[in-house]
């Protein structure tokens, strides 16, 4: 790997990191897991002049739950931590389903959830999961902290609303207001491939009734797509076959896939439909194998 020349700093405090970012302006980049940034630098698609490595910042490698059920994921929490998390397995079915499907084991050892959200790749899996769950990002800047809804955080492919001197320090997944169910299905050509199609579904139920629903789509548009109408169609009523079919249709309608070497637009839209049905009806074993 022969990237362009760059300055490397590894600050030991958040304030120091913010100061460095302020100095670097648009030519500075934050390095956490490096699983997206480093390949871009290798190919010289990205040539930042300053790298601010935040791996020495203390106290950012957590993921924990508040008493009310709100989940906090720190900026240095690795995918592998989430993959192995008992907390996720018991409380967060959508996240627990997605964690083992993030890239491959080598990437999962280093990459971070918060970094993935910041990278804003339309093929990033966590973005759909966070969107379906109604998550937020906490940004830390010179003026203090602000919380930004994931839905408002990404402005386009590889673009987010962070100021050059802000660092995303945490992701927040709000507490469920009922029983939580859901999952993530990803069609990929091979482990470690980007999603041909990914679908995240998160629903909360009270009794038979769906109280909240989130559906988000990976890899079928210029950015992660929240299938809001599909989700809303489920709320306030029990999950019936007709409702599931309607939601699947609405989700497929809102997808904007392109034909490429991973498949035709028509096929991808069909897979969105199929995966929404499978996730909502907990379909047969093929769902697991397809993913």
């Amino acid at each position: 790997m022969y990237p362009s020349r760059f300055r490397y700093e590894a600050p030991r405090s958040l304030d120091e990191a913010i100061t460095l970012l302020r100095e670097g302006g648009d030519d500075a980049k934050v390095l956490a897991g490096g699983q997206s940034l480093v390949p871009l630098m290798k190919l010289r698609f990205a040539s930042p002049e300053l790298i601010v490595d935040i791996n020495n910042l203390p106290g950012l490698d957590y993921h924990r739950e508040d008493p009310d059920g709100t989940l906090h994921v720190g900026a240095l929490c690795r995918h592998v931590d989430l993959e192995r998390s008992e907390l996720l397995k018991s409380k967060q079915p959508t996240m627990a389903a997605a964690a083992p499907l993030i890239a491959d084991p080598i990437v999962r050892n280093r990459g971070t959830l918060v970094g993935s959200l910041c990278h804003a790749d339309p093929q990033g899996d966590w973005a759909s999961v966070a969107l379906a769950l109604g998550g937020s990002i906490v940004a830390h800047g010179p003026g203090g902290r602000r919380t930004i809804k994931v839905a408002d955080f990404v402005t386009g492919p590889f673009q987010n609303v962070l100021e050059p001197d802000e660092i995303a320090v945490e992701a927040i997944i709000p507490a469920a207001r009922g029983a939580r169910a859901g999952g993530y299905l990803k069609l990929e050509r091979r482990v470690g491939d980007f999603a041909t199609v990914g679908v995240a579904v998160a629903i909360e139920t009270s009794g038979d009734t769906v109280t909240r629903a989130g559906i988000a789509l990976t890899g079928v548009g210029g950015s992660t797509i929240g299938a809001t109408a599909a989700a809303e169609a489920l709320v306030g009523e029990p999950l019936t076959e007709q409702k599931i079919e309607l939601a699947a249709q609405l989700a497929a309608d809102v997808s904007r896939p392109r034909t490429d070497h991973r498949g035709s637009a028509e096929y991808k839209r069909h897979i969105v439909h199929t995966f929404v049905v499978r996730l909502l009806s907990r379909a047969d074993g093929f769902a697991e194998r397809a993913a």
């Binding site: 069609l187 050509r189 041909t196 392109r258 034909t259 490429d260 070497h261 991973r262 498949g263 035709s264 637009a265 096929y267 991808k268 069909h270």
Partner: peptide, 26 residues
């Protein structure tokens, strides 16, 4: 035999020939 090509063959009952398509603008 990527899944989309097998699916296309089943759905449209037609041969799927040549290299997979690359990015096209719809």
């Amino acid at each position: 035999m990527l899944p989309d090509r097998v699916w296309e063959a089943m759905k449209y009952r037609r041969d799927v020939s040549g290299a997979p398509p690359v990015l096209t603008d719809e």
